[in-house]
């Protein structure tokens, strides 16, 4: 029997940005902007050190919804505003809540907060095919 989804259902995903994650992500994605891989360059840009690529954080949102619908191939959309940098040693908690289930498609809002409870994303929305 396939899993069913309803508005109000929730899911959680937790990821740690280990010290070298911005460098690993740079290697895999090609985003070598110095503010991501060089703490001195980040500080020179007024960021108080290097920061994780926003698109890696967005990838973690994709992981969260992919895990919830049990198939990354079902992820249909991801959208977010990067409201606060993620830094090495930060732990980010993603909490999703289904807002709509219609025509074989699920929509959910996702919050993303660091270990101090500060939002690192705003207005994050995901969509996935279900059923």
């Amino acid at each position: 029997m396939p899993r069913t989804y309803q508005p109000g259902d929730t899911f959680t995903h937790v990821r740690e940005c280990d010290r070298y994650r911005p460098i690993y992500y740079a290697g895999a994605s090609g985003d070598y902007n110095p503010i991501h891989i060089d703490p001195e360059a980040g500080s020179a840009a007024g960021l108080n050190g290097n920061i994780l690529q926003g698109l890696c954080t967005l990838g973690w949102v994709v992981e969260a919804i992919a895990g919830f619908v049990e198939d990354p191939g079902r992820v249909r959309r991801v959208k977010a505003r990067f409201s606060r940098p993620v830094r090495p040693e930060d732990t980010i908690t993603f909490q999703g809540r289904v807002t709509a289930v219609q025509d074989g498609r699920l929509t959910a809002e996702v919050s993303a907060t660091n270990q101090r409870g500060e939002d690192v994303l705003k207005g994050a929305v995901v969509e996935a095919f279900i059923g």
Binding site: A41, G54, G73, V75, R77, V78, K79, R81, F82
Partner: peptide, 16 residues
């Protein structure tokens, strides 16, 4: 480029 940050992102995946 040193003053640039990624503000917002929307991605739609229409096929695998």
């Amino acid at each position: 480029m040193q003053m640039l940050v990624h503000g917002e992102q929307d991605l739609e995946f229409l096929d695998v």
